[in-house]
Simulated assay, not measured.
Amino acid sequence: MSQTSTLPMRAEQKPVTLRDHVARMQTEFAKALPGHITAEKFVRTAQTAIALTRNIEKVKNPQSLLAACTKAAADGLILDGREAALVVDYNGDVQYRPMMRGLLKLAYNSGAIKGIVVEIVRKGDVFRHSPTNLSQPIHHEINHEAERGEPHTVYALAEMKDGGIVHEVMSVADVNRIRDRSDAYRAFKANKIKSTPWATDWSEMARKTVFRRLSKYLPSSSDRDALHQAAERIDDDYDFEATNGGETVPADPLPTSKKRGGAAAALKDVTPKKAEQAKPEPEQDQSDEPYDHETGELLDYDGPDQRPGDDI
């Protein structure tokens, strides 16, 4: 008589989620974070970002998520959609994106900067650029009661607490030469992808471009080079698709909105606490992309269907 043996059944193991992966890295994040950000807060915010990041279910490599979070921790930015955000690229990898607000925070954290302005000059504005006038190299006046035309210049200016002023000025042609090198923009122009921030958010991308140039002349904090490090990542900002809080925004490379851009308006409100060709994929539904395309930043996490999920 043959005998059969049976092994004791093991309890069914719950699959490891992306949120679990991030939680397990808390100790490592703590080593990279600056002192004013706790590892607990960073992990909690990152887990919320995971639950609300579009296409997160398409992530193929969890290690890319951990690498993205580690970069954010090293830069001293939290993934709250205001300072920084997570984006899933066409290859199913997670990328980290510093936002304009986060970059400004890092700039102010040096303690050496009195104020920063990043603005777009449009036809009808009064604008004078005098590079040899060290006390006032840029003069810009906007008449908000008049219709403003198309942009022609983008600039960034920082006043130092010691009285010095550093600035950077770029023409629209200068900005567009950088835009035209973007793999995502080339794919968009070839109708291979649905949209790109260079088409939906030209103003915000232009501000980031000129600010990146200015950042080379700005001091970073004394114990870390977070600003320069984060500014170098702006180049990666050009490879993800975006929509406007529920609907795809028509391409408008040179918007002529009369309203002043949100990035410039928010600058004085920032008060810090102490090449590979893009691989096109089939068009996808863009309806839930949590981006505000007037400011270029992510929308608040308050959408009706935006709730953290246990299976992410």
Rank of each mutant, 00 (worst) to 15 (best):
Ile56Lys: 01
Ile56Gly: 02
Glu57Trp: 05
Glu57Gly: 12
Glu57Phe: 07
Glu57Arg: 13
Glu57Pro: 08
Lys58Tyr: 14
Val59Lys: 07
Val59Glu: 06
Lys60Tyr: 07
Lys60His: 10
Lys60Arg: 15
Lys60Ser: 05
Lys60Asn: 11
Lys60Gly: 10
Lys60Thr: 11
Asn61Ile: 06
Asn61Arg: 15
Pro62Ser: 06
Pro62Thr: 05
Pro62Tyr: 02
Gln63Trp: 11
Gln63Lys: 15
Gln63Ser: 15
Gln63Cys: 09
Ser64Ala: 05
Ser64Asn: 09
Ser64Trp: 09
Ser64Arg: 11
Leu65Asn: 10
Leu65His: 10
Leu65Phe: 04
Leu65Tyr: 09
Leu66Gln: 11
Leu66Thr: 13
Ala67Pro: 00
Ala67Asn: 08
Ala67Gly: 02
Ala67Met: 07
Cys69Thr: 00
Cys69Gly: 14
Thr70Gly: 07
Thr70Met: 15
Thr70Asn: 11
Thr70Leu: 15
Lys71Arg: 13
Lys71Pro: 00
Lys71Tyr: 12
Ala72Gly: 09
Ala72Val: 05
Ala72Tyr: 00
Ala72Pro: 00
Ala72Met: 02
Ala73Leu: 13
Ala73Phe: 04
Ala73Asn: 02
Ala73Trp: 03
Ala74Gln: 14
Ala74Arg: 12
Ala74His: 10
Asp75Pro: 00
Asp75Val: 07
Asp75Lys: 01
Gly76Ile: 04
Gly76Cys: 09
Gly76Phe: 03
Gly76Tyr: 06
Leu77Trp: 09
Leu77Met: 09
Leu77Glu: 08
Ile78Trp: 05
Ile78Ser: 04
Ile78Met: 09
Leu79Pro: 04
Leu79Trp: 04
Leu79Glu: 01
Asp80Ser: 08
Asp80Val: 09
Asp80Ala: 10
Asp80Tyr: 07
Gly81Pro: 04
Gly81Glu: 03
Gly81Cys: 05
Gly81Ile: 08
Gly81Leu: 00
Gly81Phe: 02
Arg82Leu: 11
Arg82Tyr: 06
Arg82Ser: 14
Arg82Asp: 11
Glu83Ala: 13
Glu83Asp: 15
Glu83Ile: 00
Ala84Gly: 12
Ala85Ser: 11
Ala85Phe: 05
Ala85Met: 04
Leu86Ala: 08
Leu86Glu: 06
Leu86Met: 03
Val88Pro: 01
Val88Ser: 00
Tyr90Trp: 14
Tyr90Lys: 14
Tyr90Thr: 14
Asn91Gly: 10
Asn91Phe: 10
Asn91Glu: 14
Asn91Ser: 11
Asp93Ala: 05
Asp93Ser: 06
Asp93Arg: 07
Asp93Glu: 14
Val94Met: 10
Val94Ala: 02
Val94Cys: 04
Val94Gln: 03
Val94Tyr: 05
Gln95Ile: 04
Gln95Met: 15
Tyr96Ser: 00
Tyr96Trp: 15
Arg97Leu: 12
Arg97Ser: 08
Arg97Glu: 14
Arg97Val: 02
Pro98Ile: 04
Pro98Asn: 09
Met99Trp: 06
Met99Leu: 14
Met99Asn: 13
Met99Val: 08
Met99Gly: 07
Met100Val: 02
Met100Cys: 04
Arg101Cys: 01
Arg101Met: 02
Gly102His: 05
Gly102Ala: 06
Gly102Met: 02
Leu103Thr: 03
Leu103Pro: 13
Leu104Lys: 12
Leu104Met: 13
Leu104Phe: 09
Leu104Arg: 12
Leu104Ala: 14
Leu104Pro: 02
